[in-house]
Amino acid sequence: MPPVHRSVVYDWLRHDKKFPHVWCPGCGLGILLGSLLRSLVESGLDKNQVVLVSGIGCSGRLPVYVDVNSVHTTHGRALTFATGIKLAKPELKVITVMGDGDATAIGGNHLIHAARRNLDITAIIVNNQTYGMTGGQYSPTTPLGAKATTAPYGHREPSFDISALSATAGASFVARSTVYHVTQLDQLLGQAIAKPGFGVVEVLSPCHTNFGRQNRLGSQVDMMKEFKRKGMRVERWRELPEGKRAESIPLGVLVDRDLPVFGQSYDRICDAASRRGEAGK
């Protein structure tokens, strides 16, 4: 497909008072922001139709830059606000942006229930394996053995696989990409936005300032190169022998299935309830 012109993306940004943005130089969130804007434009959505909802953390600051309806909520609760917005106005396109700690630690309960309910919401989960904004404490996706400001001797807990968790909990659509694989990320975000039901896109992004520095992973460029080295299309990854799989990260559409969507089933309940009400009169 032809690339979306830069000026269109520019048009979707808020220019009054909001720039420069809060993120560290080299952060992946700017790349994600660009990718999300291209996907929105590509999807043919009207700005008034889109609601961007975020939680707390570095990712939580993303919606303020976008000239749509933007709601910056409390830590971990973006999906609960998004659920209310979607129930109230089903015609709106509701997209949440959360971090790994936001979505799977403090908001983990909301994530699995939003996936189980399968309401038509797109959840972008930016996984940088740490709490970046608060200084690099360990999160549910920090790898075993990694250093964190709250794990000075190395992290002692296994980590969540965000995509597998979302799929198991019942999401219609689950995909993973990185801020290195931008073309793929554009496509996956577009697919997730178009898909009815709960769609999760896990976006791997480097936090060189906190995670990288503590774990001697080099500069942001080195961390991006690591995504390039490890990232592999899921179709190819599935063909790898079992023992070789851990060395690579499967990227692409992991789950794409048609499941009952909450809004449609609720509409049927409303019809039945109002019919029963009339019959009772």
């Binding site: 709601v71 606000f81 129930l87 109230a88």
Partner: peptide, 15 residues
């Protein structure tokens, strides 16, 4: 927590 979050979302959307 989810109940009140959901209500705030609904209210922002006009309910």
């Amino acid at each position: 927590i989810a109940s009140i979050g959901c209500c705030i979302g609904g209210s922002l959307a006009g309910k």
